[in-house]
Structures are given as C-alpha cells and as structure tokens.
C-alpha cells in the first residue's frame, strides 16, 4: 500500500480532555497514514482512544476536549487548526463521513427515513425537490433496502436494528465522501445481522473506492474487513501492519496478549489467557511503555523510556523495546501459532 499517496496523515497528534478539574491525555503522540482505498482497522479496549482519534478527523471532539499538538493533514490542509464550524462543514459529510455504533440513537425518531437522507443530499449537494428525492431513494436501494419508495416514507421505529444501520450507512454515503469512518458499526447488532452489514460495507467500499477506518474491539471482525490494522493502547498506536502481519507475526506484547485472550484459542478446562491488571490512568504522565506494568516480558527499559517505533517491514512497525538490537530475544507465545491456517477455519 505505501506506493500510493496517503489521503490523510496524522502527525504527532495529542488530544486532551478536562475532566473534573483534571487533564486527561486521551491521545498521546499518534502518527498514522491512511492510504487511498484501504480499510484500516483500529483495535483497542475502551478508553484506548480509538474513537477520540477518529473524532478529531471530523472536528467532533466533545467540548471539554482539545487538540494539544500535532497535525492532521488532508488535501493540503491541517484539520488540527480548524476552529470554526464553517471550515468543518466543507469536510464533514462531504469528504469524511461517519457511521456510529448505535443506529437507535443516530437517527431522528420524529422524521421519516427519506427526509433524513434527503437532508444530507440537500445540504451537501444542493439538490432540491424531485432530484433530491430520487437520489435519496437511490441511496436506500444502494444499501440493500427492499422497496425503497415505500421505506422512504417510513419512520425509524418501523425498521429493525440492522435495517436502521443500513439507513445510517446510506446517509453517510449520500454525499460521496472519500473517507468513511465506521465506529463499532455492528457491536449493537446480532451476529447474523452483523455478517450482513459487514458484507454490505465491504461491497460498498469496493464499489465507491472508499478509504475506510474501521473501529472495533472484535478481532474476528478485524480479520473480516481490514487490509491494515492499528493496535491502540492507552492513547498510543503500539503496533501497525497489514492484517496478516498483525495476526501471524505480531511483535508488541500487547498485541500478543490481545490475540492470546481470544476464546477461540482457549483450551477447555484450562484457564484462558488473561492480561492481569487494568489499563493505566490517563490522568498524569505515563513513563516508558504504557503496557509495561501488565507485561510479563517487560524489560527494564520499558519502565524508563518510551520505546520508538521500530520498523519490521515497509508496512509493519511496532513500539516496543523488544525490537531493539540490544534486547534479549523473546518470542511470541506459542499458542499464537494456532491462529495460522488449519487451526481456525471456523468459529
């Protein structure tokens, strides 16, 4: 992928929030490139900063949060410097669109489905009347909704959860954005519906050459949708690589731990691998590697100094001292070999 130009580049981004009089560092020096046409999955636990990171791309940080430093470069502009809503309106929806977790809350229950899609079309494409209506119906058909003309007049409560999420996707795609951000779009859905929505997103991404950021904590979903994967921990990207590199050749101990705790790798009757402790508090400074206190393989250096990003291949890098030439050789847990090939062909 690196041969193409990045569509969006994040450089040394820092985001903070003021919470009960204290300052919380939600994003700590993150750099990331998003390439044309790829699907990048961001995985991490709640509080790791994955949603906050993507919200900065659209200027949707909560009012108690702000960008402390760094750049978000998109088409020659630095989105991190945007201050007014007017500037954001050119980006939001038109260039970068978002699908959120819960379709129950992202739709207005008082307006018909059709008028909500039309609103997006009207505001961003300047269509009115008949053309706007036709475009909205077209959008509904595009996300696989049967009888779009009839569904156009219905209200959100007449749709099931999966159908509502399709509508939300239709609204996001109504203005032909370049980048689509999906923030846990299937977490609130049943597995069978999730499978359908994932399939829909994949087909739309292909059809419209969308660049997609997919946020999730479910590694099964990651394997299903992603070209590249970024692993976040405590407001930092600790490892990034292609999907195969992350699953088959993970380097950061946190990535190992995440993969090890997959129940699919568990052996019945034995304890499932678990990460002890809890994620660090993001109030105050974090010294060294944020994962070190929970890491069984932690080196002394991990507690002292933040490791740099080590490059493993042109597409793969990880932030751990284990990759330093001076570090002792520590190999990934044996159990992860089972992720390959035959071991996991189903559930």
């Amino acid at each position: 992928m690196p041969q193409t130009e990045p569509v969006l580049s994040v450089r040394n981004l820092q985001v903070s929030f003021r919470l009960r009089g204290e300052v919380l560092h939600a994003i700590r020096d993150v750099s990331l490139d998003l390439y044309e046409g790829e699907t990048l999955a961001i995985v991490g636990e709640s509080g790791s900063g994955k949603s906050v990171l993507t919200k900065t791309f659209m200027g949707l940080l909560d009012s108690n949060g702000w960008i402390d430093g760094g750049e978000i470069l998109y088409q020659g502009q630095d989105l991190a410097r945007f201050r007014t809503e007017k500037e954001w309106l050119k980006i939001r929806g038109r260039q970068i669109a978002m699908v959120l977790q819960d379709p129950m809350t992202s739709l207005n229950p008082l307006k018909s489905i059709g008028s909500q899609i039309e609103e997006a079309v009207r505001l961003h494409q300047g269509l009115r009347g008949r053309p706007a209506h036709d475009r909205a119906v077209e959008c509904l058909a595009d996300v696989g909704i049967q009888e779009p003309e009839r569904r156009y007049r219905q209200y959100p409560h007449e749709f099931s959860g999966g159908m509502r999420q399709r509508v939300v996707i239709a609204i996001a795609l109504a203005c032909n954005p370049r980048i689509l951000i999906c923030d846990e779009p299937t977490t609130a859905l049943d597995v069978t519906i999730q499978a359908q929505i994932l399939r829909l997103i994949r087909s739309l991404v292909k059809k419209y050459h969308l660049t997609t950021v997919y946020i999730t904590h479910d590694l099964g979903v990651v394997a299903n949708v992603a070209d590249r994967v970024a692993v976040m921990y405590a407001g930092d990207i600790v490892e990034i690589g292609t999907c195969r590199e992350i699953f088959f050749d993970p380097r950061h101990p946190y990535t190992w731990a995440l993969l090890c705790s997959l129940p699919q790798l568990g052996i019945k009757g034995e304890a499932l691998y678990s990460i002890h402790g809890t994620p660090p508090s993001l109030f105050g400074e974090i010294h060294g590697d944020a994962f070190a206190p929970r890491n069984d393989h932690a080196l002394r250096a991990d507690f002292k100094e933040r490791p740099p990003m080590f490059t493993i291949s042109p597409t793969h890098s990880a932030r751990t001292w284990l990759l330093d030439p001076r570090a002792p050789e520590i190999r990934k847990p044996e159990i992860l070999e089972r992720l390959k090939g035959e071991g996991l062909t189903h559930v």
Binding site: V191, G220, A223, A226, R244, L339, G341, L344
Partner: peptide, 9 residues
C-alpha cells in the same frame, strides 16, 4: 455468521 479471527479465511 460468527467472524473468524483469521485473515486467510
């Protein structure tokens, strides 16, 4: 429908 955590599938 359960997604398999294996990118090769």
């Amino acid at each position: 429908a359960v997604p398999v955590p294996n990118p090769d599938v």
